[in-house]
Design a protein around this nucleic acid. Structure first.
Lengths: 236, 236
DNA sequence: CAAGAATACTTGTATATACAAGATGACTAT
DNA sequence: ATAGTCATCTTGTATATACAAGTATTCTTG
């Protein structure tokens, strides 16, 4: 093998198809036999490509059925900022949300840069407060690149969270986030219904699709009500 | 195969040896041929066990040399609270630390429970402030189970961080942490040399070895100086 | 003694083959 | 028409074999 090994070439080909949006979430990918025909390799080699991509969570397989593109959700593993609606209902809470703002604005410099668009161009902005048992739990301020989600302003986010909607219209390929402790400003205090000042956990998250930066979100929660958890272990 | 497949049995055997502390960090594990002799399987089957454990970060392999138990560090992947000394030096900063306290105390209830020992029994406690360029960056208050690290009080933590020392004397098998935003109390303000109040990022971490809970640590950093980052992507 | 070659180990890649087992649709007998 | 069977697809497990390539030791040769 002068260059890359065959199984790696096949892996790369599969990833490219997914990144380019040719094969979408939950869609079937070629079977071991199809791949081995197509790439002129043995079934075991094609199998290796599929298996390794499965192990890192890009594909899922099921005996008798086939191999499928995994949902981006499952990618996330540890530092996933889980869908807050799921998180609340999962622990038996009552989840509601309020859309405080849903508009088109002119991007000031820091937002334009974070979204990779021109300064003063139009971008979409939403402000949503997530509640657990009617108490505000998290405020989500999100800026969206209109080129990649043109119908963002027409959505009903009490039914489908922005993150869920965006993963549908612009399949995610990458996400970065930072976690920090901040003091809420007045606006945030109002949104979260906080009377006395309290430190907040702020997650900043930017998401990419194959066409570019999709959105930039600030998720702010009161330190007393929200924490992130992580868990590492040896057992497989 | 009536029960578990052979490669899974071998994987389990390897994990057990590591959990039990029989095979330590960076130590060699049996080669593919040795395993295939021992378990009466083909080399490919033994290889599969080793490869899969490598892919999840439990082992590392190197052509011509052999297969080794990975360092627990590399386990961590995303939410790893990286060794702060490494983190600072890696970004070109000057790392120093001060040991403010290193003592044996009687465990009050919450600490005893977190460590899984009797209330009022003796536990070790250390308070260390980590500095970057002579500015305090993080305070680490740690409680240690003396049964699993009896010589903890004799260590020089300016040379080897507590986490590094503990992984040596009690190989880690599991870690849990939570991240939250808190307001520092007076003590912490003093430790971190903070004059005006500022929200802090607090990481609580408990670590396990095969013999039980090793330690319980609170890592507190000023929100303005420290953040956690995460990164998810499709490319392998 | 020192430099290089031979060797014996290791992991890495690739193939061909066999059978097991889950899923599905078509076909058949009741 | 419905229930069961069968054929055929899929992935899953397991083996035997071959050669490539990296590492370390030993042996040979100058």
């Amino acid at each position: 093998m002068t260059e890359q090994p065959k199984f790696a070439q096949i892996k790369q080909h599969i990833i490219e198809q997914i990144r380019a949006g040719v094969w979408l979430e939950h869609q079937r990918v070629p079977s071991e036999n199809e791949l081995s025909d197509q790439f002129k390799v043995s079934r075991m080699t094609a199998r290796r490509a599929l298996s390794e991509l499965t192990e890192v969570g890009i594909l899922t397989r099921s005996q008798g059925l086939g191999t499928f593109v995994a949902s981006f959700k499952s990618q996330s593993s540890l530092l996933e900022i889980r869908n807050i609606a799921d998180e609340v209902t999962q622990r038996g809470g009552d989840y509601t949300c309020m859309v405080l703002s849903l508009e088109s604005i002119f991007a000031i410099a820091p937002i334009a840069i974070a979204l990779g668009v021109e300064i003063d161009s139009q971008v979409y902005r939403s402000v949503i407060v997530h509640h657990e048992n009617d108490e505000p739990l998290q405020v989500e301020e999100r800026f969206v690149n209109p080129a990649l989600a043109s119908k963002y302003l027409q959505q009903d986010f009490t039914a489908l969270t922005p993150h869920e909607y965006l993963t549908q219209v612009a399949p995610l390929t990458e996400a970065r986030h930072t976690v920090e402790a901040v003091m809420p400003n007045e606006e945030v205090c109002q949104w979260l219904n906080m009377f006395n000042e309290e430190p907040c956990l702020q997650v900043i998250r930017r998401t990419w699709s194959s066409q570019g930066i999709v959105s930039f979100a600030r998720l702010i929660s009161p330190g007393s009500k929200y924490r992130l958890g992580g868990h590492l272990t040896f057992k497989k």
